[in-house]
């Protein structure tokens, strides 16, 4: 090895060592703010701790055995699945459609993109309050408008399907811009030469999108679906503000049910067990989608 290449190798080693050192604060931060609370939650889930009655010092699988026979948990998983599947599907479809539309816009109109980002900037509680008003017949301008023509808009928040629809609409409105941003970035990474080549070969715009653009977008679509899906498992503000889990208990998604057990029923240990289950579900989905993403990319 020449002295020059030795110098280069030494410099590369020093650089890598520097990078490794720079990672240390991040590792410490993750350990403090993620791993420690996670370990605490796991320990709580095996305990019998109750906010009012305290603990008898018992540790075991009691809470997890209770989970298996809990009908309210089953209902909460159903609610969470419906909200997540339909919500994320709507966000990805609308986000992609808007991104494709905005991608072709040029000149000063490109500033119009900012408009589509507004819902994403609004805090979730404010979003929920806006949509609660819109779905409350006595407050809603939509109902007032249709009333002028003698049309009665149904009350969405008093039936399970209607309430879930309302939550999905509010969630989609505030979260589709995230999907739009990721897809827009991915579209900008696709060479326009491919479109031009397809046009020269006589392919229509729709065919070009389906057979050329969409396959190239697949990794981005998968990634954004994964991000949104994991985030959607944490349904809370929309439910808390718009329905309080009602009618009855019909919109209590799993995360909300964990809140009810922890804060309303003071059953901290059982709430932690539900949270652990939710964490495992999210981890499993992430792992599976990451594998799928790897396969598609390769």
């Amino acid at each position: 090895m020449s002295s020059n290449s030795k110098q280069r190798a030494g410099a590369t080693y020093e650089l890598e060592r520097g990078y490794r050192r720079m990672i240390v604060p991040a590792i410490i931060a993750v350990a403090i703010f993620a791993i420690v609370p996670l370990a605490g939650m796991l320990a709580l889930s095996f305990s019998d701790y109750h906010l009012i009655r305290g603990s008898n010092g018992e540790f075991g699988l009691r809470n997890f055995i209770k989970l298996v026979n809990d009908k309210r948990l089953v209902n909460s998983i159903y609610v969470m699945s419906v909200l997540s599947l339909f919500g994320v599907a709507a966000q990805v479809i609308i986000g992609t459609a808007v991104a494709v539309g905005l991608h072709k816009i040029v000149g000063r109109w490109r500033l119009g993109r900012v408009l589509f980002l507004v819902p994403y900037a609004v805090p979730h509680v404010a979003v929920a309050l806006i949509w609660l008003s819109l779905f409350t017949p006595t407050l809603s301008p939509i109902n007032a408008f249709f009333d002028l023509f003698g049309i009665t808009v149904p009350s969405f928040l008093t039936s399970q399907n209607g309430a879930m629809f309302a939550i999905i609409v509010a969630d989609t409105w505030t979260n589709f811009p995230f999907t739009m941003l990721i897809i827009l970035a991915a579209l900008q990474g696709i060479s326009p030469d491919l479109d031009e080549a397809a046009a020269l070969d006589g392919a229509s715009r729709v065919k070009t999108f389906i057979f050329i653009t969409l396959p190239l977008l697949l990794p981005a679509l998968l990634m954004v679906t994964l991000f949104r899906f994991i985030d959607s498992l944490k349904h809370f503000p929309m439910i808390f503000v718009m329905t309080k889990g009602g009618p009855g208990r019909s919109t209590q998604a799993t995360n909300f049910y964990a809140y009810v057990q922890t804060f309303q029923n003071s059953n901290v240990a059982y709430g932690a067990a539900i949270a652990v289950l939710l964490f495992l579900m999210a981890a499993l989905i992430s792992f599976y989608v990451a594998k799928l993403n790897q396969r598609i990319s390769s």
Binding site: I52, S159, Q160, G246, P247, G248, S250, Q264, N265, S266
Partner: peptide
């Protein structure tokens, strides 16, 4: 009672379920 918040929440959910025709 110390347990009233939990009791009130549970009773309220059942009353609301009946009101909206779920049960």
């Amino acid at each position: 009672l110390p347990d009233w918040p939990a009791l009130g929440q549970a009773i309220g959910e059942n009353i609301n379920a009946a009101l909206n025709g779920l049960v």
